[in-house]
Design a binder for these strands. Structure first.
Lengths: 216, 216, 216, 216
DNA sequence: GATGAATGAGGGTTCATTCAT
DNA sequence: AATGAATGAACCCTCATTCAT
């Protein structure tokens, strides 16, 4: 099984090894998405120009429009791709043989690292943007919601199994799932605003698992 | 003591009760900030046009420039105002006579409601924007960081006192504070993406306080 | 007889000695014109804002509009005033008892100094603007032309008398007059672009009077 | 050798003869400069809108920004181009086999005609603008000064040679050069304010060469 | 008469999108 | 298929002018 960081790499690195081009190259679309992800993630939708992306992808601006209807559609595609990879990863972890606690731990670990590497909580940032009304964002919202639901579902299933296995206490699994995702975000977030003191992911997960309260 | 929702109202509602105007009206500045907050919060910095804000505030575009140097400066002012009110509220809660658990509970309750009313987790969204590079955001970042630090400080102090009082277990207070803020955000967020099923704030806080793990 | 520099002073210096105000103060109009002259001369018509002038004159922007229909009309007034003073000065010199050569010499001397003090060849600059088409400038042109003609007339008359007196050789006096005015401008101009080496006004006038050619 | 009027033409007339375009057309840049020269010269920097120029050049406003960073930069380019052509012309005249007197005569003749054709003493007008403070003009000034110096240099050299050749009397050549340039300007100027009576260029140059004074 | 806050038309600039090559 | 020059709508900001006090 590939781990998250590895799966993600093909999105984070250029792959100019390509053998034969010169036929509606499937790689061009990928290359655009890769680069768009990085730029959108770091600059946001509006600050990112189509030119930036085209240049980063090493193609002409016009070419981009052969593969994507418009900027918004590119954005949606980037997010979709991003989420698909994430979901695939989650599914793989789910099937692994380990305690549910360990699964959540692994997911959190890899995901925080990934976001730090991308220099953006893009994943959550996108969620945030759901918030923003506008023609563009209104188109993004329903698509994103589907993926979000799927992600929450997978996490919730892990938690459900954990409850059955008496690892976790009885609690609405979906709410716990969302809380888990936000815990991950916190991990990224703390590292980002105070880059010196790298957050101790252990403490954070400990907090997530055991809560703040004194046990008696 | 005023509660959060009430404190916020003076930013969310127009106050055209005022007697005599005409002399660089202090109320206009407030009216602009009120409306800018709502629009920036829902649309984000770039999608918001100066015209939108001016119209919402019932003034001409040019008038806005009598009160704010430019769009970015308005944005900073809005955030500052927003944060100042938040900090004042936190300080008041801090001084109240109640358990530290109750304090956090109260803060979370009011804050989630407020964000739902504003239709945006603007507060956290702004934190997110810290991430986004750009001339404008680079100007916003240092200012925001100061306020963020203050907010984290106050929450951390409550947690610290809770630790001393044996309400909470020994854990790095600042990390717990950030985790708490993200928990609040989760509360808003879930309600927002799935508006039908209002999240049970109780469950969420229970999760925050007691953690996911089965106690043994 | 006052010399040019002195006559001009009341335009170049503030006169806050004013006794009684508080009655459609005739001095306000003057104060506006004084200050407008300086600013227009140094900044040009478009870069000068009505606010600049009002502030320099120590009045409110609205007040300015009680005395002048609009910015263009103020500009015309400033130029008129400027020219009137110039013409009065020229007339006085004309009547003096001295050779015509001496008269021209005196005029040139004073005028160059004045322009240097004002930091602008505003006088000629205005002429230049005649060139510039635009609603505003089209209004300025005919008015300016009248004054220009008058100035050329007076100089031409001095030259004519010089011709009669055998001081000067027979030459179309009006052309010589324009040439004389441009010589003055040259004087200012050289000083301006190369401020270190103050032009030797003597050499310049010598050139004007004796020409470049070797005499044989 | 081309004469001034001819050299200038390529700036004053469109050349749509060109074969194949499409590849950042060099001709568009020229077309913009041509038209900008005319409009700037007649309207001045501030009254001229970017739209005016774009329309005159037969392109869209945005297109202009593919070739020039901003309005100020376009202005500088126009002036530079204008000056370069002028300097090239002067250098050519300088090398010709004729008396220095004839050289100056030729230069004055062509230049006055050119300015009249352009309907602006733009050349000198630009010099005037050196005077006007403003961010824009502060950028223009140093560039212009270099070119002005060059022009003065060339004229001064002609005069120097004339002095050596005993055509002209001993006089500071640079001052004489500036005086010469202003004489040209006078020529244009008189024609402009009194369009009926075309100035007799001969008289003017006679004045320049022999001076006003009676010879004895 | 005097004020200066308010106005809004106008201009410079950006950038997503198109289309001729 | 790929290009990138050209387009023009949209947006920020300025400033002459007005008008309620």
């Amino acid at each position: 099984m590939t781990d998250w960081s590895v799966r993600i790499n093909h999105l984070t690195k250029n792959c100019p090894k390509n053998k034969k081009m010169r036929t509606k190259d499937k790689n061009i679309k990928e290359k655009i998405i890769e680069n768009a992800l990085k730029i959108f993630a770091q600059e946001g939708f509006f600050k990112t120009t189509v030119d930036d992306i085209a240049q980063a992808a090493g193609i002409a601006k016009g070419t981009l429009y052969l593969y994507f209807k418009d900027k918004a559609s590119l954005y949606v595609n980037v997010i979709e791709e991003h989420f698909k990879v994430g979901i695939k990863y989650l599914n793989e972890v789910q099937k692994e043989k380990m305690t549910n606690t360990a699964k959540l731990q692994k997911i959190a670990d890899n995901w925080i690292d990934y976001m730090i590497r991308l220099k953006s909580s893009f994943f959550m940032f996108s969620m945030e943007n759901v918030n923003l009304s506008s023609k563009i964002m209104k188109a993004v919202k329903p698509i994103m919601n589907v993926y979000l639901e799927k992600i929450v579902d997978i996490i919730a299933r892990i938690i459900e199994q954990g409850i059955k296995a008496r690892e976790f206490r009885k609690i609405e699994p979906r709410i716990a799932a969302v809380h888990f995702l936000n815990t991950i975000r916190t991990g990224f977030f703390v590292t980002f605003i105070t880059p010196k003191r790298f957050i101790d992911k252990k403490i954070l997960l400990d907090l997530f698992f055991k809560g703040l309260k004194q046990r008696r």
